[in-house]
Design a binder for these strands. Structure first.
Lengths: 332, 332
DNA sequence: TTGAAAGCGCTAACAT
DNA sequence: ATGTTAGCGCTTTCAA
C-alpha cells in the first residue's frame, strides 16, 4: 500500500493542501515547512499518484505520437524511430512521456477526435505521412496542441516542422561544385509526388544556376532495380555525367551495384552521392558520400515545440529545423 | 466542453451508474436500456474521460516499454523498434497503449520503482539489455506485472521471453547439411558474454554432432573489421572451411567484403550465411542467406503475455516464442 | 502562511 | 434492473 498525501500530512503535522503545495513548490509555503514536508515524503517513499494528479489537474503528462506503424517499419523506416527517440528524450526532460498510437490515414481523423475527447494526452505529434486534408481540419479546429512532423503534401494552415531539404540540396551542390563536378544526374521518384526529392532538387538547382550550370533530372526512380537501371542507362550514353546523385539510399545502392557490375571505377569512372546516411550508405563498398539528416534532432525539436504549445496554446509554426550535414566518403 | 456522464444520464433519463454500467456492458442492465444509453451517448459524442476512468478504476490503460534509448538506436538496433511495433499492435487490440520510457541500466531500478509508485502504467515490458540483478530483484518483489524481453545474461527467477536462438542454430545447421556443406566456421563475439551467439552455436553443434561432425568456432569477432580479418585468416589456410556462418549482419558484411577483395567466388569458393535478415543481408551483393527472427512477432507475443499477466498476476514464464525462418539466397 | 472544503468524472458496493 | 452513495488521491479556491 503506497503512502498517500494524507499519510504525509499526518506525519508532517499539517494539512493535505499544505503537503500538495509544498511538494509543488508553491510560493505561499514557508521554506521551513517545505523542507519538513519533503523530508517526511522522502522518508515514507511517497510518490504522488500520477492518476489522481492527472485527474485533479486535468493533465495527462504525456504526448501522443501518431503514425501508421505498419509491419517492418522498424527496418524500412528507421528514421521514424529516430524521430521518436529524440522526442522521447525531449519530453522526458520535462517529465512527460510519449504514447505510441497506430493510425492509418483513413481512420486518423475519427480516431484522433476520440482520443482528444478521451483526454488521453496533452498534445499530439503526427507524422505527415498520415496527414490528409480532413485530418488537417480536425487538428486546426480542435484545441489540442499538436505538431505535424514533415511537410504536408498540400497547402494548409496546420503547424508543421521538417528537415530543410532545400538546404540539404544546396549543401550537396556546394560540395559537388567544390570537388570539381559539373555534369550531374539527379535520380528521384515521381516528380509530382515526391516532394522531399523535389525540395532537394530545388536546392541543388539554385546553387548550380549561380554557376550557369544545370542538374539533369531523372525521375521515376524509386526502387533498387530502378536505380540500377537508371545507372546503366547513364553509362550507355556517349556523354556520361560525372556524378550520380540519388535521393534515397536504396536508389544509391542500386546504382552502386550496377556500376560495379559494369566494372566502372568509383569515383574515377563515375562518382556517386546520396541523401540520407542511413541505413546503407556506410556499409556498402565503397562507402557513399551522403547528406545526413539528423532525425533525432528533429524529433527533439518537435517535442520541444509541442511542450511550448501545451503551455502557450496559440503558438504556431511552419518551419524547418536541423541543418543537414555532409559526410564525404570514398564515392566522390 | 465535452459531455460528461451526467449529461448522458439526464438525456437518457436514468442515473449515472446506469450509464456507466450500460457503456461497460454490465450484465445487470437491460438490453433495452443499454441501447437507449448508447444511442444518447453516440448522439452527444460522448467519450468517457480516460483520466477519470483511470483514476476511479485504478488502472491506466497503458504499458511501459523500458530500455536504453541511446542516440541512433533507430538505425543501430532496428530490431528494438520492430519489437515495439509488434507490442503496440497487440496492446491496441485490447485498448491499451504503449508508453516509451528511457532508462539506463544503472538508473533503472530506482526509476522503475518510482514509476510503479506513481502508478503510471498497468505493466512493464523491459528489454533484457538493461536488466541487472538489482533490477531483477525489484521486478520480482514488486506487484507490477512485467515481462523481460530477451533472455537475461544471468541466472534469475524473472519472467522473460525470447526468440529461440538454439532453434535458429539448428535450422541453420539443417540447411547447411542439406546443401552438402560439411566444414563450417562459425564467427561470434566474446564467447562468454555473447549468450545469443552461444545459443545459436549450441543449436548448430547439436545437429552437426548427430552426423559426427563439428563446427569450428572463431570467437572475438564483433565488428565489421574483425569479420573481415577473420575471413582473410580463413582464406589463408591450407584447408579452408566451405562456409562461414556469422552470428551478426555486421560480421557477415565484413566477411563478404573481404572475400570479394580477394576475388573469391561466393558461394563457389566460399559460402556465407548469417543470422538476422536485417538490416544488411539483402542489400549487399550477393545477397546473403540468413536465418530471420521475427521481432514484430516477439513484441506481439510479449505484449499478449503482459496483458494476460495484468489480469492474472501470478502468471510466470521463462520461455521462447516465435520460430525462426530461413531465407535461402545467393551466398550459399 | 496555512487549512477547510469543493470539486475532478468516473466505478462499484450496496440498497432498493 | 436501477439508483444511491461513497470513494479514488489529488489540486485549487477561498477563508482564516
Amino acid at each position: 500500500m503506497p503512502s498517500s498525501i494524507y499519510d504525509i500530512a499526518r506525519a508532517a503535522g499539517c494539512s493535505i493542501s499544505t503537503v500538495s503545495k509544498a511538494l509543488n513548490d508553491h510560493y505561499s509555503i514557508a521554506e521551513e515547512t517545505k523542507r519538513r514536508v519533503r523530508a517526511v515524503a522522502e522518508e515514507l517513499h511517497y510518490q504522488p499518484s500520477a492518476r489522481a494528479r492527472n485527474f485533479a489537474s486535468r493533465k495527462s503528462g504525456s504526448a501522443l505520437f501518431v503514425t501508421d506503424f505498419y509491419r517492418n517499419i522498424g527496418y524500412e523506416n528507421p528514421h521514424m524511430f529516430e524521430i521518436i527517440n529524440g522526442a522521447t528524450h525531449a519530453l522526458e526532460e520535462k517529465g512527460y512521456s510519449l504514447l505510441l498510437r497506430n493510425m492509418r490515414a483513413a481512420d486518423a481523423p475519427a480516431l484522433l477526435q476520440d482520443a482528444m475527447l478521451r483526454e488521453q494526452a496533452d498534445g499530439v505529434l503526427l507524422h505527415a505521412t498520415i496527414l490528409t486534408k480532413q485530418l488537417a481540419m480536425v487538428l486546426m479546429k480542435a484545441d489540442l496542441p499538436y505538431l505535424v512532423i514533415g511537410r504536408p503534401g498540400f497547402s494548409t494552415g496546420v503547424s508543421w516542422m521538417d528537415v530543410n531539404h532545400e538546404s540539404a540540396g544546396r549543401l550537396a551542390a556546394d560540395y559537388l561544385l567544390d570537388r570539381g563536378y559539373r555534369r550531374v544526374a539527379f535520380l528521384l521518384g515521381n516528380a509530382r509526388e515526391d516532394t522531399i526529392a523535389q525540395s532537394r532538387l530545388k536546392g541543388m538547382n539554385e546553387v548550380f544556376a549561380e554557376e550557369a550550370l544545370s542538374v539533369e533530372t531523372i525521375s521515376g526512380c524509386l526502387t533498387y532495380e530502378e536505380g540500377a537501371r537508371a545507372a546503366e542507362a547513364l553509362l550507355d550514353r556517349a556523354e556520361r555525367p560525372e556524378v550520380i546523385v540519388c535521393s534515397s539510399n536504396t536508389l544509391a545502392v542500386g546504382c552502386l551495384h550496377a556500376l560495379r557490375a559494369r566494372g566502372v571505377d568509383i569515383p574515377g569512372g563515375m562518382a556517386l552521392m546520396t541523401f540520407d546516411n542511413y541505413p546503407f550508405s556506410m556499409i556498402v563498398q565503397p562507402q557513399i558520400t551522403a547528406v545526413d539528416l539528423d532525425m533525432y534532432d528533429m524529433g527533439w525539436e518537435a517535442a520541444r515545440f509541442l511542450l511550448r504549445r501545451i503551455h502557450k496554446p496559440n503558438l504556431q509554426t511552419q518551419s524547418f529545423c536541423t541543418t543537414p550535414r555532409l559526410i564525404a566518403r570514398d564515392s566522390t
